[in-house]
Nucleic acid binder design. Structure first.
Lengths: 227, 227
DNA sequence: CTATTTAAATATACGCGTACAATTAAATAG
DNA sequence: CTATTTAATTGTACGCGTATATTTAAATAG
C-alpha cells in the first residue's frame, strides 16, 4: 500500500517552507541518545554529581542550553537512566527466580534480589527514587509509559501463585501492592535512616513475603474455590 | 579601663585572653533559634522553596555566610524543622490512639494517622524524607539524638500488645520494624509514583496491620485458632 | 592613644539548573 | 546576489548552596 517510507527531513508532506528546516525526529532522537549515553558514562566514571547539564554539554561540545532542545529538564535525562537501571535489576530478578518452582521461594528470591540491588547501589537508588524536584507529570508519564510498571509483573505472578488466586483478583492486587510498598519501605528506611538499628533486610523481606498466604488462610476471607 | 561588665558574655574563669571574645553558648543558641524560626515562618508562608540560605539571611539582615557560623549546612537547619514536624505528627497519633483499648485498633489508628499525615502534607514529606544531599552523619546524629526514634515507641507498644509478647522480644522488634518500613513504603510509593494505580492507602495500611498477629498464631502454626 | 590578637562577619567566587534575550544557520523568494 | 523567514544555538543572567579569602569588630598590652 504505502509506496515509500517518509523517513528523513526531506520526505514528509512538505509545503516547501521558508525558514531553516526542523531537525527530523531521527536526528533529534540520535542526539537524545548521545546525551543519555554521555550522562550514563559520566555517572559510571565519576558518580551522580558528575551528571550536570554543563558537564554533559561540554563533553558533547555543545552549549549547556542546547540540551534543552532535546530534553525539557535534567530530570528528563535522568529518567532515561532509570530505564537502563530498571532493566538491569529486572534482569537480575529474572535470573534469581528462574529455576525456582515454589511460588514463595520465587517471591523471596525476587524480593531479596530487588532490595539487595538497591541497597548495594545506593547511588542508583538516589537517582531513581530520590531525584528531588520531580514534577508530578514527569514521573506520571514515565510510569504510564510502562517502563516502571513492567518491573512489577513478576511480583504479581508469583503472588497470585502463592495465594492460589487469580492474578487480577482484588486480593492479589492488594497483597502485591503491599509487598511492593513494603520492599520500597525497607530500602528507603535502611538507606535514609542508617543510624537506626533496623532488623536485617533479609529478615524484613522474608517476614513480609511470609505474610502472603493462600486466600483460604486469610482471616475473615470467605473461601473462594477455584480448583 | 572601665569596670563595666563585658556584656552578657560568659566570663567564667577566663584567663582574660586577648582577642575578640567568643560568642557565648547562650548567644549562639539564641541566634540558632532565630534562624530556625525564620526558616519555619518562611516555609509556612511561601513553601519549601522559600527556605534558602540567602533568603533566611536577608530576613535576619545578615549575610548568607553568617548562617554558617551557627549551622554547618542548610540541612542542619532543616533538621530542626523535622523535629517540629515529628512532634506534630506524634501529637496527632497520640490523640487518635488515645481512647482505643484494643491493640489492633490502636495500631490501625496510629498507622493511618501517621500515613495520612504525610500524604496530606507532601511538602512536609519532602522536607523530612527526601531532602537530598543528606550526609550520612547529619541524619545519623539526628536519629541517635532520639528525636526521630521516639516517634516509633507507640508502634512498639501496640505491636507488642497485639502480639501478646514482650516489647523487647525479637519477634516484636522484627514485626514493628516491618510495619514502620511498610508504612513508609506506602507513603513513599503513593507520593513519588502517583501515576500508578495503587490500592488505597487505607486498604494497604489495614492489610499490613492485620498481618501482625499473636505469636502463637504465626510461624509454624498450620491452624488458625479462632477465639 | 596605637599595636596586636582573636573571633565574627562579609565579600568573592564556583558550579549548579534553567529562564529569557540575542545571535547564528539554513532554507526560500525576489 | 540580498532579503526574509524560521529553527537551532548560544549568551547572559538569576538564585541556589557553600568554599575560601578578606575585612571588620572587640578585646588586651604597651
Amino acid at each position: 500500500m504505502a509506496t515509500n517510507m517518509a523517513s528523513a527531513r526531506e520526505q514528509a508532506q512538505k509545503p516547501a517552507k521558508r525558514g531553516r528546516p526542523k531537525k527530523s525526529a531521527a536526528e533529534k532522537s540520535a542526539t537524545r541518545q548521545k546525551i543519555v549515553k554521555t550522562a550514563s558514562t559520566l555517572f559510571k566514571a565519576e558518580g551522580f554529581e558528575a551528571i550536570s547539564m554543563r558537564r554533559i554539554a561540554k563533553e558533547l561540545k555543545l552549549s549547556p542550553m542546547a540540551l534543552y532542545a532535546y530534553f525539557p529538564t535534567k530530570l528528563a535525562i535522568l529518567s532515561r537512566l532509570w530505564i537502563e537501571i530498571l532493566e538491569e535489576v529486572g534482569e537480575e530478578m529474572r535470573i534469581a527466580a528462574d529455576k525456582l518452582t515454589d511460588a514463595e521461594e520465587r517471591l523471596i528470591a525476587l524480593s531479596m534480589t530487588y532490595v539487595s540491588y538497591w541497597l548495594e547501589r545506593r547511588d542508583y537508588y538516589h537517582i531513581v527514587f530520590m531525584s528531588s524536584g520531580l514534577t508530578r507529570e514527569d514521573v506520571t508519564e514515565f510510569v504510564r509509559e510502562g517502563s516502571a510498571v513492567a518491573q512489577f509483573d513478576p511480583f504479581f505472578i508469583a503472588t497470585a501463585e502463592a495465594m492460589h488466586a487469580e492474578q487480577d483478583s482484588p486480593a492479589v492486587k492488594l497483597k502485591t501492592d503491599q509487598l511492593i510498598c513494603g520492599l520500597h519501605g525497607i530500602m528507603h528506611c535502611l538507606i535514609t535512616v542508617p543510624g537506626y538499628s533496623w532488623s536485617s533486610a533479609n529478615a524484613l523481606v522474608t517476614s513480609m513475603v511470609k505474610d502472603i498466604k493462600p486466600v483460604s488462610r486469610i482471616e475473615g476471607a470467605e473461601r473462594n474455590f477455584k480448583d
